[in-house]
Nucleic acid binder design. Structure first.
Length: 417
RNA sequence: GUGGGAUUAGCUCAGUUGGUUAGAGCACUGGUUUGUGGUGCCGGGGGUCGGCGGGUUCGAAUCCCGUAUCCCACCCCA
């Protein structure tokens, strides 16, 4: 039996890794324009970090974390998301002391123990950004503008932006009571799952996908109708700024978050092209999180993009792999070593050169040159070695140019640039 | 955690109502033709039919049960 990768954890292979690199490089370019710096944190963290930030009763903490004890019996967890570790690093290293605004982005693998399916894996990758220290709604809009800019730059337009406000510790409790009372009056019409959770997590019921539940809750009270004055102002300012920047969006009063730390503005970029995994990016404001983790009372807002989902969206348009500039075919055993030296010289000079490492027939070598889509091809045999002249063949149009072996490197270096 | 589908060559898949030595295309490889490659033709290697356990049968790749993995959906999320 051969050894296979762990369930839900995938290799990223040549042919698809080019798409990843493109998406990552584009993100670095765009995020830098908006003043973000990269931060890299460890993959495992103390389990407590996630319990305290994400919330004890969330699905992630309750049943999806990769938690284990190390040899000293300390409980550690492979990070299931990126925000909490970044906040931990921010507090530990006092990054907030540099400036009144801290802008960070991260990129890396996350782990959740779920049943894998399209666009959802046990090891997956998130690309996220966080802004700390600004409560002004302009920063909410700024973050959304950057997200919008990024998606435009990578050529994905099949997503739409949905926003909502979850209120704050001032106004949410009162709303929550109203919602629970409403749900209690409709309890019989809800799906069993919602009947179980309406007390623990009533907002979740609004996001239920069972048609009957949606039907039964069409006139449920919405958080945005019960926002306190400050939250109301904040939310309307975000929308005003979005309109000013001509960023299309729609308000979805039923959108909720799976993590407990979110307040006020929340948002998702959704698509209809990935089956049931419709969220490609999501995020929101988390004003109490840093303080809750023992840091200063810093407001924060951020998002995370699911890279596997982004790759799936981008996937159709394959990014062509690099092609060799020149392929060297060796004719006869005596030419193999000189061909190898020539190839090495070309590579050392910065020219992408290829040959066949095994001694094959000339036909097989040339077939490989064609398969690799090399731009030029030359045959090196006894004749060429004694005369010092080779025929450089242009594979596209078939034309041949006589070139001296001595001048070949210079010619190709020039041609390459 | 709950459902549905799948598993046969390196890859994509056929294999009819169970019936002898299990097939195709691509890929790989040898030869040949074409000016030293792209085309055509002729050959070749490669599979104990995912694994294990069990059942039905004269006979199982084929039917049934268990188990593993993958995919898809639910749940949830990015």
């Amino acid at each position: 039996m051969t050894i296979s990768a762990i369930k839900g954890m995938n290799d990223i292979l040549p042919g698809e890794v080019e798409t990843w690199q493109f998406l990552e490089q584009s993100a670095r370019n765009i995020f830098e324009i908006y003043g973000f710096s990269e931060i890299r944190t460890p993959v495992p963290e103390k389990t407590e970090l996630f319990c305290r930030s994400i919330g004890e009763t969330t699905d992630i903490v309750e049943k999806e974390m990769y938690t284990f004890a190390d040899k000293s019996q300390n409980s550690m967890t492979l990070r299931p998301e990126g925000t909490a570790p970044v906040m931990r690093a921010l507090i530990q290293n006092r990054l907030y002391n540099q400036d009144s605004v801290t802008k960070l982005y991260y990129l890396g693998p996350m782990f959740r123990y779920e049943r894998p399916q399209k666009g959802r894996y046990r090891q997956f990758h998130q690309l996220g950004a966080e802004v700390l220290g600004v409560e002004d709604p302009k920063i909410d809009t700024q973050v959304l503008a950057m997200l919008h800019h990024y998606f435009r730059s990578i050529g994905i337009d099949s997503v739409s932006l949905q926003i909502n406000s979850l209120g704050c510790p001032e106004c949410r409790p009162a709303y929550r009571e109203k919602l629970v009372a409403y749900l209690e009056s409709r309890l019989a019409a809800l799906c069993p799952e919602c009947q179980r959770r309406y007390l623990v997590n009533p907002l979740r019921v609004l996001d239920c996908k069972v048609p009957d539940c949606r039907e039964a809750t069409t006139d449920a009270p919405a958080m945005i109708e019960y926002l306190c004055e400050d939250c109301e102002t904040h939310f309307s300012q975000v929308q005003k700024h979005l309109a000013a920047l001509e960023i299309p969006f729609e308000v979805n009063p039923r959108m909720v978050r799976g993590l407990d730390y979110y307040v006020r503005t929340t948002f998702e970029l959704v698509t209809d092209q990935l089956g049931s995994q419709n969220a490609v990016a999501a995020g929101g404001r988390y004003d109490g999180l840093v303080e809750g983790l023992g840091g200063p009372a810093l407001p924060g807002i951020g998002f995370a993009i699911g890279l596997e989902r982004l790759v799936l969206l981008k996937g159709n348009e394959k990014i062509a792999p690099g092609v060799p500039v020149v392929f060297i075919a060796a004719l006869g055993d005596a030419a193999v070593d000189p061909a190898f030296v020539l190839m090495s010289q070309l590579q050392a000079a910065g020219v992408r050169a290829e040959m066949d490492y095994q001694s094959k027939s000339l036909k097989a070598q040339l077939r490989r040159a064609n398969k690799l889509n090399a731009r030029y091809c030359l045959v090196l045999g006894d004749e060429e070695l004694t005369s010092g002249q080779v025929q450089l063949k242009n594979m596209a149009d078939g034309t041949q140019t006589p070139v001296s072996l001595a001048g070949l490197v210079d010619l190709l270096v020039e041609n390459n640039s």
